[in-house]
Simulated assay, not measured.
Amino acid sequence: MIEERIREVFARAGAVGLLHAVPVDVRSAVAVEADATPDDREVAVSADEPVVIASVFKVLLVLEFARQVAAGQLDPRERALVTAADRLGGWGTAGCLDDVELSLRDLAYFAMSVSDNSAADLLLARVGLDTVRLLAKELGLDRTRIVGGPRDVLQSMFAEVGARSEAEFAARYPELPDDHKRRLAVLDPQRTNASTPREITRLLRLIWRDAAGTPEACAFVRDLMTRQVFRHRLASGFPDEAVIAAKTGTLPGLHIETGVVHYPDGGCYSVAVFARTRELTASRQAVDAAIGTAARIAVDFLRTRDR
C-alpha cells in the first residue's frame, strides 16, 4: 500500500512520518468545505494525529496580515524597527547585529522566505494573536491551536530549562537528559502551536482557491511561499519543472514542511509532512530528504488517479 511505502521511507531515515496529500483542484467548493475528498484522491498517513506545527504557524499569521491589508485595516508600508530587544537569533532580522527598519510587508516576506522569528513576532504584535486564532476557526481548522508567537515559544523553553538568556539556554540545554528535553512544552501538541496534517493541507487548499480571504490576500501568501529559500525538504523530491510553494518548520527532533506542488500540466497538490526522530537534533539530512521522497511518492500516486 502507498501508506506503507511512505512509512518505510521514514523508517529508513530513522524517523516516524505523518503525511497528508490531496489535489488542490478539488471537484467543488463543497468538497473543500466538508473535507469530503474521496479516499482515492488523497494520501493519508496518520493525517488526523495532532502535530506541533512550529513555524508553519507563520502561514496563518501572514494570511491574517494580508487579509487586514486587503480590508484597509493595515498599511503594508508602515515602518517597523527591529531592535536588539526583538532579536531572537536565527535567519533574517532575527540574527542581525544592528537595528533594522523595514515595512510590515517586508516583515511578512522575511517571516515566510527565511522563517525570520523576529519579523514574525513584530508582525503578530500588529495583527493580533486573537485575530489569528479567530481566523483558524473561521477557516474550519477546529483542531488547530495557536498559543503564541516565536518569542512565546522561546520563553517557554527558557523557563522549563531554568535559563534567563539565550546564552544560558545554549549552555544548559545540551546537558539535559533526553527524557527531560522530550517533555518540553514546545514538543507537545497539547501545549504549543499545533494542528493536524489534514487541517494544514486544508488551509493551503483554501489559500490556493482564493477561499481563505480576498483573491489579493491569498495571492500575497502564495507568492511569498514560492519565495522560500529552503529547498532541502519538500522540493528535494520533485523535478525542476515542478513549482514548489512551501513553508518549513523545525524544532529539536521535528522536521516539518507543508506546501503546494504545481506541475506544468496544471496538476496541483497540497502536501503536509511531519517527521519525528528519536534524536533531538534540528539537522538530519536523511530525514529532510525523506520528506521530499515521501511527498513525491504521495503526489505521484495522486497524479495517476487524476489521469
Rank of each mutant, 00 (worst) to 15 (best):
T201A: 02
Q190Y: 01
N193W: 11
T196V: 08
R209K: 10
E199F: 14
L176K: 11
P177V: 10
G213E: 11
I207H: 12
A212K: 06
G213R: 07
R182Q: 12
L176D: 05
A211Y: 01
Y173K: 05
P189C: 05
R202I: 00
D210A: 11
A170T: 00
L206H: 07
L187C: 12
E199Y: 14
D178W: 10
S195K: 03
P174W: 07
P177H: 08
V186R: 05
I207Q: 10
L176F: 08
L203P: 08
V186C: 13
L204T: 04
A211E: 14
T214H: 07
P177E: 09
Q190R: 15
H180F: 14
I207K: 13
R172P: 00
H180Y: 06
R205D: 02
W208K: 07
L203Y: 01
Q190F: 02
P174R: 04
P215N: 07
A212W: 02
R183C: 07
E175N: 04
D179F: 13
I207F: 08
I200E: 13
L206S: 02
L204R: 07
T192Y: 04
L204P: 07
N193T: 12
L203H: 04
D188M: 06
D179L: 13
R182F: 03
R202P: 01
E199K: 14
L204M: 14
T192A: 10
L187M: 10
A171K: 12
A212V: 05
T196K: 05
P177D: 10
L187Q: 10
L206W: 05
L176E: 03
R182M: 11
P189D: 06
R205G: 02
N193H: 13
E199M: 14
P174Q: 04
R205T: 11
E175C: 02
A185R: 13
P177Q: 09
R198T: 02
